[in-house]
């Protein structure tokens, strides 16, 4: 006869580390893009940048994409990544490979866009916004973490 303890399946599998990393990095990215969005909308006054390049970048015509501030697009992307990563940390979704692929797709789009923005800073605007550079580094790390996560879930697949 089975006891109650035998009947209850306790999941001792550790939560996927890559998704936890993605969630923390996405939260940091979200805060940075929130900062830049608030600055762009005029709520912050002087931006803390050090080099002054942030203002040059943020006041240029390239600070908008499809009529919206680029930082606002960043907020959207990081919020999506944060939500997806949090959803995939525990429970049945922890090993959901499709969720990992969705995260990787969003991260890929964002990393390509970020590379384009970095190119604009280097070659067209000729000024560096340190917050944008930090954001580019964060999204690159998220991309690699997402790649690692997809490989992990592929190895888990029966």
């Amino acid at each position: 006869m089975n006891s109650l303890a035998d009947a209850v399946v306790v999941d001792h599998t550790p939560p996927p580390l890559a998704r936890m990393v993605i969630a923390v990095l996405a939260l940091a990215g979200l805060l940075i893009s929130l900062y830049l969005t608030l600055y762009k909308l005029g709520y912050l006054g002087v931006i803390q940048c050090g080099t002054g390049g942030c203002e040059v970048v943020q006041t240029s015509q390239y600070a908008y994409f499809l009529r919206l501030p680029v930082a606002l697009w960043g907020m959207g992307a990081y919020t999506t990544l944060l939500a997806l990563a949090l959803a995939g940390v525990h429970g049945s979704r922890a090993d959901d490979r499709r969720l990992g692929l969705v995260i990787l797709t969003v991260a890929t789009i964002r990393v390509v866009f970020s590379a384009y923005l970095t190119y604009l800073e280097a070659a067209v605007i000729r000024a560096w916004c340190r917050w944008c550079v930090v954001s580019a580094v964060l999204i690159t790390l998220i991309f690699f973490a997402a790649l690692f996560d997809v490989r992990r879930s592929r190895n888990l697949a029966p």
Binding site: A28, L31, L34, Y35, L38, Y43, L44, G45, V46, Q48
Partner: peptide, 13 residues
């Protein structure tokens, strides 16, 4: 992050 943002908003907004 939110603390730093709030501080910045109060200081220069």
């Amino acid at each position: 992050g939110l603390g730093l943002l709030a501080r910045q908003m109060m200081a220069s907004g």
